[in-house]
Write a protein that binds this DNA or RNA. Structure first.
Length: 321
DNA sequence: AAGGGAGCCAACCGCGTCCAT
DNA sequence: TATGGACGCGGTTGGCTCCCT
């Protein structure tokens, strides 16, 4: 399967920055064809451009396409990129499909020039998304308490290992969303981290690419609280509206004294009934439960008896909260 | 004002994959 | 099944701009 010589190697084919005339010629040509490019290889000749077809494709997809979003990345977009990168790695084109109007090249550049440095400053390895060793030179000399409280790398690695093969990116996003929520839950006494992680989770929920309705989150948390039973139910109440300011405040008040909640854990667990999962979304919740079912197999990945077992760590951390 | 370093980003390069034959 | 053309992707480069000295 030999690689065909690219037309870019032809003598006389123009390289480098595109001129306005070239842009106009490319756009007009594609518009004349009703947006249907056809063959990129044949495009330069058909449009009268002295460019390689590859170069034309790149110019169109990265710059001239009408649906490209201009301007700075929003905080929500940034968090979504980080979450997706944690789940997918350097799959820029896949990540780009989750951000409307953003190109893979743009995301890749933004990652390399902004996010990467930001993560390093926060003491997070931008490749593995794990906490860097304490002796790593943080620019601000601090580390994120939320990220250090939960065994996130284990959680995510196990979740990814379990979900990654059989499920699509939407399911992966849901697993990552769960991670964000666990972060939020784990960020006791750290309002900034709590809100940041809730916002990240909320951004994922509101993402146009999210494959599941927001309400399904309730099903997810219900399953986790009753099925896996590794988090105290009190923390999970009404989690879908968690990011609302008043609820955040309520959460902060509650977590200030975790043991002094007015209602018992059992009473709070009851709230996961019809109150929080309305009957009209029950079929959707069921569907989502099916998607997340592989996560229920997570304990099987490592022994409960093992001293470094995954679930044991989770349990210990959750009870500490 | 000028020079140099750093940051940014559009564009290029080459490999992997898909698909038609 | 093998082959080769075409496309798409991720890594890299190079030139422009900004900022600092």
């Amino acid at each position: 399967m030999g690689r065909s010589p690219c037309c870019c190697h032809d003598a006389g084919v123009k390289k480098g920055p595109w001129t306005e005339e070239e842009d106009r010629a490319l756009v007009e040509h594609i518009q004349r064809r009703g947006g249907n490019v056809g063959s990129w290889r044949g495009l330069p000749k058909a449009s009268g451009l002295n460019r390689c077809g590859k170069s034309c494709r790149l110019r169109w997809t990265n710059y001239l396409r009408p649906d490209i979003k201009r301007g700075n990345f929003t905080d929500d977009e940034e968090r979504l990129i980080i979450s997706l990168h944690a789940a997918l790695g350097n799959k820029w084109s896949t990540i780009a499909t989750h951000l409307e109007g953003r190109t893979d090249n743009e995301i890749k550049n933004y990652w390399n020039t902004h996010i990467r440095k930001k993560l390093l400053r926060a003491g997070v390895d931008p490749v593995t998304h794990q906490q860097l060793p304490p002796d790593h030179g943080h620019l601000d000399g601090t580390s994120s308490s939320a990220t250090s409280l939960l065994p996130e790398s284990l959680l995510w690695a196990a979740a990814a290992a379990t979900l990654g093969v059989g499920l699509d990116a939407g399911a992966l996003m849901q697993a990552q969303l769960l991670q964000q929520l666990l972060h939020a839950i784990g960020s006791n006494n750290d309002t900034a981290n709590l809100i940041a992680n809730l916002a990240a989770a909320n951004a994922m929920l509101n993402s146009t690419s999210s494959t599941l309705p927001n309400l399904l989150l309730q099903g997810q948390m219900n399953m986790l609280s009753t099925g896996a039973n590794y988090l105290q139910p009190g923390y999970l109440c009404n989690i879908s509206s968690f990011a609302e300011q008043d609820v955040v405040q309520q959460r902060l008040n509650t977590t200030a004294c975790p043991g002094t909640s007015s209602s018992s854990a059992a009473e709070q667990a009851d709230q996961f009934g019809d109150t929080f999962v309305p009957r009209d979304v029950a079929p959707a919740v069921e569907e989502f439960a099916g998607l997340l079912e592989p996560m229920m197999d997570l304990p099987g990945l490592c022994s409960m008896e093992s001293s470094d077992s995954f679930w044991k760590d989770i349990l210990e951390d959750s009870y500490r909260f």
